[in-house]
Design a protein around this nucleic acid. Sequence first.
DNA 1: ACCTGAACACCGTTCAAGT
DNA 2: ACCTGAACACCGTTCAAGT
Lengths: 214, 214
Amino acid sequence: MTRTRKPLNRQRVLQAAARFADREGIAELSMRKLASRLGVEAMSLYNHVKDKDDILDGLVDTVIAEIELPATGAPWKPAMRRRAISAREMFKRHPWAISLMESRRNPGPASMRYYDAVLGCLREGGFSIPMAGHVFSAVDSYIYGFALQEQKLPFKTSQELAVLGDEILKYLPVDQFPYFHEFIVKHALKPGYDYGNEFEFGLDLILDAFESRR
Amino acid sequence: MTRTRKPLNRQRVLQAAARFADREGIAELSMRKLASRLGVEAMSLYNHVKDKDDILDGLVDTVIAEIELPATGAPWKPAMRRRAISAREMFKRHPWAISLMESRRNPGPASMRYYDAVLGCLREGGFSIPMAGHVFSAVDSYIYGFALQEQKLPFKTSQELAVLGDEILKYLPVDQFPYFHEFIVKHALKPGYDYGNEFEFGLDLILDAFESRR
DNA sequence: ACCTGAACACCGTTCAAGT
DNA sequence: ACCTGAACACCGTTCAAGT
């Protein structure tokens, strides 16, 4: 009995790798498991990608491609705002992406298009070259760092925090950590607290500051 | 022949792990290699740490402890500025730290002290609790994200870029990436360009913005 | 052209056995 | 109390052999 199957290719390998990482986490991703997900042996993957590093580089470019590009010629501020929010949503969908960004140094085509579109939007929006560099650096640093912090937090909302509740206060003696204790009790535990809301506050603060310096 | 040697302990294991990561990179760190660096077999490490995750958690706390804490009661702005610069220098010393921050979720004592000191400096500096939360979130996001970007860059200065030189321009056709091309040729390749200088620009932009909203 | 079995040099971790 | 040898269940990658 012969089974027919779609032949593999680089793109199908990368798509499967992204799905796997979404579900199981990037730490679980191995050549053997990925291959078995594709109904094939690990060694077969090497016909379509160079090695595991190549897969990881490819994954970074795949997720960068999901970020909404700012339109060149559109008003720079709402355009930057939208692509920042779009980037953050991508990091929420693929929590493993942030750790991959860090370790990968080879930009793929989607990353190149991203860089060009952001710089283009800023240049056409009236920023000098050095100033466009400042905006790019500050805004992207903020996006990546926020995504990293959001992921690192053991809780995101007052509800999640309330579940930990007394547990967490035990590790937070008021005499040793008075300000941290105050922050948790008087602020983060209050209904409606959601760390995620901080994102747009900081983003708008940065964008406003650049607007007045343009 | 019996060799006497200092008995191991958790702290010595963590110190050796940090030195190893500084020299060889975090990806190279294995229980076996670390043990051999300490003149012992891998299994011995399990007498002093729970497992490899415990070492990684410990490493995060070790490097956080290297960040200069803002003094409570000191003027908030220079204090925030100094600790931000101190944090960035720590990430330069330990490039592997940023990737570890991402994956670790259990804050150790040094991280707790850090949170408390930063919040304390802001509260005593006249910020309301929610505003202190805004500052903390924005500034720390910026620090982590900048460290991540700096590490991801294939070049940091115009000199390093000049070495890549034509190599890089080959992958950057002007018709396909006009703005990126412009940025590299007219700005980043100019003598004196150093991406590291962006750090304080963005930092001061954020601090100034918060000052006017305090 | 694509896939595979066997092999190599690694991992983290456990467990019983040593001192 | 601390260290170790052997073992287990994994890794990524190569190579020659299959179709």
